[in-house]
Computed example of a mutant assay.
Amino acid sequence: MKKTSLIKKFEVFEKEFHEISNSIIETNIYNNHNQYKTLLKKYKRLEKIVHIYDEYKKKLSSLQEANSLLKTDSDPEMKEIAFLEKKKILEDLSFIEKKSHHLFFSNKKEKKTEDYRNAIMELRSGTGGNEACLFVEDVLRMYVLYFKQVGWKYEIIHAQKGGSNKGYKEIILDVRNNSRSTSPTVNNEKKEVYGNLKFESGVHRVQRIPETESQGRVHTSAITVAVLPEVEDIDVNINLSDIKKETFRSSGAGGQHVNKTESAVRLTHIPSKITVECQEGRSQHKNFEKAMNVLRSRIYQNEKEKRLKERSIKRKCLISTGDRSVKIRTYNYPKSRVTDHRIHKSIYDLIGFMNGNIQKMIDLLKSFENKS
């Protein structure tokens, strides 16, 4: 790593350290236990980096002095001392550079821990009417078969059927890693629920002949997929006073109990206007917990997307930012082809892909992201 590049990295961490140092003593932060605990942990990690940076700057200053002596001093003894001193300083600088590289790498690794979180997956019909609703159901089946391959569990949090009760207008899933799985296909990477599924966020387009099409014309429809990392209370601070809670009777299947009691829950986060519904469980309390889980994830994702936009992330990095307006993939049934537009890769096995064999495409996307 070049010295100028290393110094720039140090300066970024130093700036962040001073910002946290100032904010951590504010009363509203100190009184918020979860936020204070998170910032304190970050402060301690950055403090180590700043101390190393201070030492690095001292060594660079000493190196400059040694170089100056070697150039200007005519005394052979002083030159010998300066030469030995320079050699020692260069060894120290090399050690600090290696140590700092390890620290920076550890920091990246820490960020990657988000990939190991469970995920909330939302599928919604877009353009195409009933055909889009049917494709939501097809894509849902594709993901469910994939979950079985990698040993994950899923639970439906909310579902809204399409027109004429065919397909889905919207369906939300809670997807979890089954750590007790003994399947030989479950390697360490496949424990990354969010780390694998985050690449699925965006617009999925389908080109095929609908069942209702009498003249055999190919129609184009679209659905949107959003994948959010599951978050905990410590990640997102939500005041209950900011939440409007409504209960109502479930409109879906589920027997007399579900349909005759107000077990369904609708939560609205007033500041962000985000609304979440859950009506799949028999218990209002359980539905409230599930809805809160989705709400936290959506608020977290909103904040994350704002930060990414503020940093002016390049378009190629949208591969894993979850931008739902980007057309990411086309499923062409007449040509039995699946094309991912972000990496310009096609797989000519649509049937296999729709039967859950999507890991190859995910691996290609991961490889592209790591190179970016």
Results as ranks from 00 to 15, higher is better:
M1T: 12
L6A: 00
F10H: 08
F17C: 04
S21K: 13
N22K: 08
L39W: 11
L40Y: 08
H51S: 03
I52Y: 10
K57Q: 12
K58V: 07
L60E: 00
S62L: 10
N67S: 07
N67L: 02
I89V: 11
F95M: 13
K99R: 09
K99I: 08
F104D: 02
Y116G: 02
A119S: 11
L123T: 09
S125Y: 07
T127L: 01
G151N: 07
K166R: 11
K166N: 13
G167L: 09
R180I: 15
S183R: 09
P184Q: 04
T185E: 11
V186I: 10
N187C: 14
K190F: 15
S214W: 07
A222D: 02
T224K: 06
A226G: 09
I234W: 08
N237T: 15
N237R: 14
I238T: 02
L240P: 07
F248H: 05
R249A: 12
E262A: 01
L267P: 03
T268S: 03
H269Y: 09
K273Q: 11
V276P: 02
G281K: 10
K290N: 15
Y300M: 09
Y300I: 05
Q301K: 03
N302Y: 10
E303A: 12
E305S: 14
R307F: 01
L308G: 05
R315G: 12
R324K: 01
Y348E: 15
L350W: 15
K360A: 12
K360E: 13
L364F: 06
K371M: 14
